[in-house]
Design a protein around this nucleic acid. Structure first.
Length: 204
DNA sequence: AACGAAGTCAACCGCTAATTT
DNA sequence: GAAATTAGCGGTTGACTTCGT
């Protein structure tokens, strides 16, 4: 039998849309006591006429302690750009390396700010390249700038010259540590225009 | 001041993966 | 091992706000 869709197993009409302060309070109170698990029961026991998914999302993106909101710093932006280049649209992984930021926030920030920025940069890059073609020079180093996207989807990074399991390689299970060592290591290497294979062998 | 376009962000949806029974 | 349930992810939507005319 196919798994039931969502958790809307009952015919009850659930609340949708923006959360009220009262709902927030109930949810936070419940989680404080019982912990953040079994979202379906959280919803019913806490007296929230919401589906479990909605509760989970609200907690993770808004009510959870230590959430940073707004004002993404230049450093954070830079990190997002670089991580996205490495990981693609794997927002939760990117968010995991930015303490206090949520995947939803980063995804939104990317879609509304950074993607445009990148498009703009690519255009200017293309223009300058077009001018350079008058004097054909060094071969196009590939990657940089034009790969964008397509990292997401499955659990692997597909670059022209590299295909590996990101989770396996970087051990994202080290939750909470926010260890940025590997990122820094990678990003240092990224400064050069070396290809991914070189990066990996260097990290190893 | 009014109105439409563009931008932003919270929340929902559909799906897969992981876990439990 | 199979089925059911739960958790989590990324894409998308829609309400609200800001900006330009």
């Amino acid at each position: 039998m196919a798994p039931k869709k969502n958790d809307g197993s009952t015919k009850r009409i659930m609340n949708k849309g923006a959360w009220t302060a009262e709902e927030d309070r109930k949810l936070a109170e419940y989680i404080e006591i019982h912990g953040a698990k079994r979202w379906k029961t959280v919803a019913s026991i806490a007296g929230l006429n919401r589906c479990g998914k909605s509760c989970r999302l609200r907690w993770l993106n808004y009510l959870r302690p230590n959430i940073k909101r707004g004002n993404i710093s230049d450093d954070e932006e830079d990190l997002i750009l670089r991580l996205h280049k490495l990981l693609g649209n794997r927002w939760s992984l990117i968010a995991g390396r930015l303490p206090g930021r949520t995947d939803n926030e980063i995804k939104n920030y990317w879609n509304s700010h950074l993607s445009k920025k990148i498009n703009h940069n690519e255009k200017t890059l293309q223009n300058s390249r077009a001018q350079e073609t008058a004097t054909p020079s060094q071969k196009d180093s590939g990657t940089e700038g034009d790969e964008e996207e397509e990292g997401g989807g499955k659990e692997s990074v597909n670059n022209s010259d590299l295909n590996f399991d990101v989770n396996e390689f970087f051990d994202f299970s080290a939750e909470g540590s926010y260890g940025l060592e590997w990122v820094n290591k990678f990003l240092e290497l990224d400064e050069d225009t070396m290809n991914y294979s070189e990066k990996v062998s260097n990290i190893i």
